[in-house]
Nucleic acid binder design. Structure first.
Lengths: 202, 202, 202, 202
DNA sequence: ATTTAAGCGAGACGGTACGTCCAGTCTTCAT
DNA sequence: ATGAAGACTGGACGTACCGTCTCGCTTAAAT
């Protein structure tokens, strides 16, 4: 079960009907290319050829291939769940992180890590990633944390970003930096550790 | 992709003087290019032009530009310190992480994060990165952790990789994924949390 | 970088104007562009942007950029003079050719030679050029020649086109084909030669 | 712009073999394209596609499509004849001009007039045209004229360029500027006129 | 002392993709 | 219902690097 679906900050404000059509065709083709060959396969030429949208039009709307891929991922990425209503907040976080790693391991997730990779050398992409991917997801997880704090499972004065980085950090670190497999057991123990360190009684 | 240089095919290795010379010139040029324009500037053409080493020769030793950059960084990166002898192991870890983030924030660090970015879509580079950068550093930090365990500051049964990912994960997460600034206070608190969660008495 | 679509410019100001008004504005803009950057600068996009006339409207009136430039030149080109009343017809022709070469050397003349260039690969433009530029001018010079014939300076049976091509040909040849400078002395001698060859006594 | 291939730097003792091969293939494809669709059809993309030579390589040797077409025409254009040995010099010039107009009316000639057109707005092409097409042909016709002068058919003091422009000018004028048909009779009469105007007795 | 071939510089080559410009067409919307 | 605004497809442009491929040259090792 999902919480209420928040609209992503993508507000397609278009004044031309056909522009939305071209945009949709382009993003659909991008999604196909992502699924087939990953981020590498998302070249402007390929998107243009696949979608029937002229390259000129692609460049009218996005400055480069990373922006296209980002728009595609951002538009299609399922919103983060709240881990369901059942169980403790510790368990809900564990479910949330497991959902996250499943997403990152999917074909769509390959696009996300590729975008994280690409933004290391592209400040504009980094900014766009923050706005469209990182911040919305962080906002959602922060809400769950605040509930956990109100429920007394996490200490009252806990810095939300510190806590969330403490649990999401190891996950992304393994996925993006060290390349080690992220197991459910790893997630359980990382979340356990955070709930110990930031427990109300600590 | 191979880590350092490729093995020469023939056993009777004629140690030609200039091969090492060409390799050194190439890496020196790479270091300059990294400093000047980051990883983006390290193209095979630029390295060849800058170093006076023929492109052919570069490809004889490295399969692509990422491998060259990796060899350069790997050769020049200072080994991780052990945090110095003074103070508790908690403090030594904090010093070690602060040294790490200073490295990542340097010009050389831009190359490292760029390589982490590039390896998201290049499995051979990912493997080479693991071999040359990640594993050696992890081995060093694991030794420090084992000392901390022997000293009783960390619980005896602690999984070293779990503990180390718990402290390095948030650091790299901020640097590579979220892009937020990594402050000394953040490091202190992350390490504090890990020492609480994995303390001997837990 | 923009994530979704780039911002559309605001405040679309639309006001209707008469067709003649649009045509005049377009030709005025064309004249400016011709003066600034020659025929190369006369693109439909540039004329539209400069004049405030929509590209659609330009295409309603002219089939392509060459036609626009031609219309501009044709509308603004001073009619050929008759060399003034004074002197012999030989001298009047010499004055007329000198005026022609001065025109061709002017900024407007650059447009004319560019149009002559463009019509080599554009039959419609070639036809339009003939109608609007070549024929009217030839008609004027033919009248002068007929006067010269009546005055006895040129032989009675002279084919007008042959005579006129004999004097205008070398001028345009130098200007358009060989690129050599056309001096007043060259014109004098070419006209002299024609008057010798086609003199009444020949 | 360079005429044929760009000057190799120093020490061109490198294998010119492969470069000549690519050059030949490119020019052969260009000739086909010229024959099929005229100068318009000679695009770098088309030459590359047709010849199997990479676009990069085309740009290595020629700066733009006009230069390619020029190199093609220049390499394949038959040298001007001397009009054959028989008859008077007047007749030899008439034969020479008739051969010239036949050339200009051929498929190859379309390329020449198109190049003359293109050079109106491309100074580098204009220079290359002069060097490779105009000057060599003028040198040949000037030799014939000098023989005519020595033979007493043309006055001794005649300026060669003036005489030659007087006969070639009307030909090119009709072909390039006015678009009128150039008949054999027209050529005969133009040459007659020049021989009258510049006759030894004049 | 003479081969001999590995390693080298130089750089041309076929390619892929880039990002841009402009052409000419088509749709929408305001007046 | 006209015409300005401007989005669209499409073709070609000229550039940057890629990774591959001869070439000859140099020189150390093995004769």
């Amino acid at each position: 079960m999902r919480t209420e679906e928040r609209a992503l900050p993508t507000a397609p404000r278009r004044s031309r009907q056909s522009s939305a059509e071209a945009r949709d065709k382009a993003l659909a083709a991008t999604a196909e290319l992502l699924a087939e060959g990953g981020f590498q396969a998302v070249t402007m030429e390929a998107v243009a050829a696949r979608s029937g949208v002229a390259k000129t039009t692609l460049y009218r709307w996005w400055p480069n291939r990373a922006a296209v891929a980002l728009a595609c991922v951002s538009a299609r990425m399922a919103p983060i769940g709240d881990g369901g209503p059942a169980g403790s907040y510790r368990e809900r976080f564990q479910r949330q992180l497991k959902a996250t790693i499943r997403l990152l391991n999917s074909a769509e997730g390959q696009a996300i890590t590729a975008l994280i990779g690409a933004k290391q050398t592209d400040p504009l992409l980094a900014e766009a990633y923050s706005e469209q991917i990182a911040r919305p997801r962080r906002a959602q997880t922060r809400m769950l944390l605040q509930q956990a704090i109100r429920a007394g499972e996490v200490a009252a004065g806990t810095d939300p970003d510190l806590f969330l980085d403490a649990i999401y950090g190891p996950l992304y670190y393994r996925k993006v930096v060290s390349g080690e497999l992220v197991t459910d057991a790893f997630i359980d123990r990382i979340v356990d550790a955070a709930f110990i360190a930031f427990s109300a009684r600590a």
